[in-house]
């Protein structure tokens, strides 16, 4: 299994100071230490002083402990969470334009319905749809659309948050 098909990857959620050049420091560190980024999503947090990077790293390519420790040494990196896929909720957004001559458009709309995807734009022989879901669900959707002829596809890379605690605290506990 390779990192690209979803196995052998780890997701790092890295909170950084929202300052010029910070993304270059992180990307430069990965390049310099020979680590490989599978995907990267960046956005500001609710606190404007910080941004959050969601980085998917191939674990076969690098000892994860070294990745985390070297990242942590960057002065602008505030904290790092290593997210295990089974203990986190992951989402990715895909926008895709697919060939859809009028006679087969219905088949594609079937898939859109099944996956609860969204039609964004329609052309005379193409259709643009989007899907938000777990990375593997997005993979499935993309795979099913491929035979129709994908014209353009854009994926955001995944973002993730840790799963929440399920068991409520025992009200009788001291």
């Amino acid at each position: 299994m390779t990192a690209a098909d979803g196995g052998g990857t780890t997701t790092l959620v890295v909170r950084v100071e929202n300052k010029a050049g910070v993304l270059a420091r992180v990307a430069g560190l990965f390049a310099r230490r020979g680590f490989n980024i599978e995907s990267l999503a960046v956005a500001p947090t609710d606190d404007e002083r910080f941004s959050r990077l969601t980085i998917v790293v191939g674990v076969d390519a690098a000892p994860m402990e070294q990745v985390v420790k070297q990242l942590d040494k960057l002065v602008n990196v505030v904290d790092i969470q290593e997210l295990n896929p089974s203990a986190s909720v992951e989402r990715e957004l895909m926008m895709v334009t697919v060939r859809a001559e009028p006679e087969i458009r219905g088949q594609i709309l079937d898939l859109v319905r099944i996956f609860q995807a969204t039609v964004l734009n329609v052309g005379y022989d193409e259709i643009m749809v989007s899907l938000t879901g777990s990375p593997s669900r997005v993979d499935d959707f993309e795979g099913l659309l491929r035979p129709y002829g994908i014209v353009d596809v854009q994926r955001t890379g995944k973002v993730a948050l840790p799963k929440l605690v399920k068991a409520a605290p025992d009200p009788l506990a001291p």
Partner: peptide, 14 residues
């Protein structure tokens, strides 16, 4: 300068 020296400094500032 900050780009060139990013990987050879503990930290740098512009």
């Amino acid at each position: 300068t900050t780009g060139i020296t990013m990987s050879v400094t503990k930290h740098n500032y512009l």
